[in-house]
Design a protein around this nucleic acid. Sequence first.
RNA 1: GGUCUCGUGGCCGAGGGGCUAGGCAGAGGUCUGCAAAACCUCCUACAGCGGUUCGAAUCCGCUCGAGACCUCCA
Length: 493
Amino acid sequence: MNAPLYIHNTLSRKKELFEPLNPPFTGLYVCGPTVYGDAHLGHARPAVTFDLVYRYLKHLGYKVRYVRNITDVGHLENDADEGEDKIAKKARLERLEPMEVVQYYTDRYHEDMDQLNVLKPSIEPRASGHIIEQIEMVKAILDAGLAYEVNGSVYFDVQKYNEKYQYGKLSGRAVEDMQAGSRELDGQGEKRHPADFALWKKAAPQHIMRWPSPWGEGFPGWHLECSAMSAKYLGDQFDIHGGGMDLLFPHHECEIAQSNATYGKEAVRYWMHNNMITIHGQKMGKSLGNFITLREFFDGSHHSLDRAYDPMTIRFFILQAHYRSTLDFSNEALDAAEKGLKRLLQAHDTLKKLHPSDTSDADHGDLAEKCHAALLDDFNSPVAIAHLFDTVKTINAAKDGKAKLNKADLQRLQEVFNTFVDEIFGLRDTLSRPEDTGQKTIYGLMDLILELRQEARKNKDWDTADKLRDRLKEVNIAIKDGKDGATWEYANN
RNA sequence: GGUCUCGUGGCCGAGGGGCUAGGCAGAGGUCUGCAAAACCUCCUACAGCGGUUCGAAUCCGCUCGAGACCUCCA
């Protein structure tokens, strides 16, 4: 916690020294998914990015309250006046109760996140469970004179707000410029200004998600939930707010406006935005229809995938790029990530079994320092991983007897790998050891087979030795002969 | 059209005025019954054109190219 952490703040577009409001406590709010479909690769990016932030802050000694919401109401399909709630639409199409849709996809989202070894947030609030808080917030904004009611709907008065505050400061826009872009939209009739946005919408008769309010039956506006729920659980001022870059405008801009209007002060101190995942250089997104769901990655069922990819490969793939850079997906890139990850994890495993030498022929004391320096510099995971790879060479050389590591160095490296690979990067060794129920049996059988094969080799019975290896290869088990006997692992191809 | 990013070796990706990240692929070698793995060596790039500077991939300008946001989107 004493180590100086620098975070790139979208507000200033600079790296700033992280100074929490109430150390050792710190609050982190991240925009979670709208649960009307399965999570795709793009959803994995913020999940993994802010999982790293969460894990690292905890490692630094902060008491982190991590809030990540589930959006289960309020995101409209199209324009405000003719739009339909995404979840309501899905429910109507599938003839389900809206909350059935929400439950189904929330459960699946959780399963996917577990697969990626993403830690659960401290609180995972749902928008539908905070209608009262949102209504209270609308009232407060009305009281502040920064919103107006029209026909049972309430809109935020951006122009009036802009007299005292600065709307557009986060995304670098000016209110005057926004008219041009909004010109083409229809149904702006109720709004005084094109940039105004809904805080509360009157529900049309056929609308199936609706709640009573002082303005009639309706539902909360698109951006209100995050303002209301972050304030409820983290206070009207908190440290870090994260989310995808595509939420910068209008979502986060509106959040800032709502909080200022309600509390008269800036709610968020550090805004963090992860960049997009691209496919063939183009953003992977729902609206473009070019997304691949995480489940499709895990079972290889999508047509543009050559094969299935382990969740840890996806996680490592994301961690190998800096969170503020775009990351281009391709089968080749994932293949490369998988091989690299395997090398890293095998070295991690080797490290645990290595026998210490009397001396060391190099100093490895600064590895932890280097890795920390990388992460303290705006969570630069790829650089930290590069440092780990440098050490992988040493570890493998030591295994081959070509390098020496004494007890102290060995212990230090083990600690660094435990800390960074396991604890901070959350990389589980599922590649070489799937969590089978029959795992023990398999290990026992393999011990026996290797023993028999070793005898055959001793007797120079190569036919038997090769037969065992070839037949095991057919069931995706690879044998590797080394100096100190043979080892085996699951082969992917 | 407006606002803003980015263009790095065969591929993915860091870095960001002098100290040539890392991964994957490729070539050669060591080891080995064979194979695989591992290790060693090699492959030294920053879109183009100007400018600033003793020195630029890194700063500035222009050109070309790609992308994001301006409507829901992680």
